[in-house]
Design a protein around this nucleic acid. Structure first.
Lengths: 213, 213
DNA sequence: CGGTCCTTTGAATTTCCTCAAACAAAGTGG
DNA sequence: CCACTTTGTTTGAGGAAATTCAAAGGACCG
């Protein structure tokens, strides 16, 4: 496990001619994280906001009894880590080999407008996740999850899942067995095809949309 | 059903000598809503943020199939209604006779700092709700819900629940029967006492905390 | 090639949901 | 003021779904 640092590549710099938020205008460094490497932990004093340059991140909380609730996944191009009072309320880990840049923090370094946009995005993300968790059926939860991930990956087919069944279960409030059985059910019904456990081809996405709308 | 308007009372004005947020410095009007009166609906174009002066509000979304997911409850003194793009993503209704004031909107009228604080509060609220919904047991969900409401009511005993069992069920992702059975279980174990369905006396709150921590 | 971790599948159990009925509280109209 | 209706709550019985426990199969890595 390692966590190195090197200068950011060009693709993450501001595009000429566009009005990008101020935090995109500065040169940045990419921090590298190997699978399961810790990015921050609950209780840490930090208001750093990160952007995923490549890879994927899980944010979660640990409950008494060893249970874990994954609060959010973050894929390439997405930001995470904004806190209300500069104290971490969750744990964050890389799920696969990942590169992160710091795009700002909750102090004067970033404009209030940028922070507001970030906060609103995280709010909507939590609300949408909440709506998924409120669904009663495991099939509906998994359908909503797959459609969400597919959309965030730019609808490229097949989907690459950076997370394990355990991660998905902890995200949806299900056991890994139920997650696996739900995948199998979708496969048996011809809704999707599995190329290994982590690569999913959505054959009939409309059938999934019917389930969760 | 009615929704009247009259000048705000003194208690909602700024206290002399304190530095209150700018939106508290202006005089306001209280809008009145009777039980089940609509405050706004999904799709509405509005960025108004409300403060509950008295009463209680539910915010929810309707799914296909008639299912309803309550996203949040708001009690006296709390604010709600901040939207990312001035389009309502949920419905809001008064649960009991309620009075609301407008504390700002997502345009220039309110400072960016105030909006950020509101957004962060709504973000945390959604994340905490998400953690409750992720719990697998109905008893854990209800325990977390009761402790949350008790704390927000200032730990006054007994608690007054402004919402029906249907509301609680739609908030926790349970049926009303399961909610009712969970109440009965807690009552039979001496954890709480019910004075009618809407008044709850927490006899052993620590037993509830043990369940959900 | 052996070991570890992840995933899948099966069987038994528990929990929750669905359907149903009884009960309680509040409001309406005669 | 009282029957009646409506709405909300509680409780029971049966069935469906998810969890738990268990074992076997795959994929990856040293």
């Amino acid at each position: 496990m390692y966590a190195g640092v090197f200068p950011a590549s060009n693709r993450s710099r501001q595009t000429p001619g566009t009005t990008a938020p101020s935090y995109l205008a500065r040169p940045r460094q990419i921090s590298l994280f190997s699978p399961d490497a810790e990015i921050y932990r609950q209780g840490d004093r930090s208001g750093l906001v990160y952007r995923v340059e490549f890879g994927a991140v899980r944010v979660y909380r640990l409950h008494a009894g060893g249970r874990r609730q994954v609060v959010s996944f973050h894929l390439a191009g997405e930001t995470f880590g904004l806190e209300a009072d500069r104290t971490r309320r969750f744990f964050a880990e890389a799920m696969v080999h990942s590169g992160l840049t710091v795009v700002g923090n909750a102090s004067a370094e970033t404009t209030s407008e940028d922070l507001l946009a970030l906060a609103l995005r995280q709010m909507i993300s939590a609300q949408e996740h909440l709506l998924v968790l409120g669904r009663q059926s495991a099939l509906e939860k998994l359908a909503a999850f797959l459609l969400d991930i597919a959309e965030r990956q730019g609808d490229l087919d097949p989907i690459d899942l950076p997370m394990t069944r355990i991660d998905i279960g902890d995200y949806l409030g299900l056991t890994i067995e139920t997650v696996s059985r739900s995948f199998s059910k979708f496969r048996d019904e011809g809704i999707l095809r599995l190329h290994g456990a982590r690569t999913v081809e959505l054959l009939k996405p409309d059938r999934l949309r019917l389930l969760c709308q």
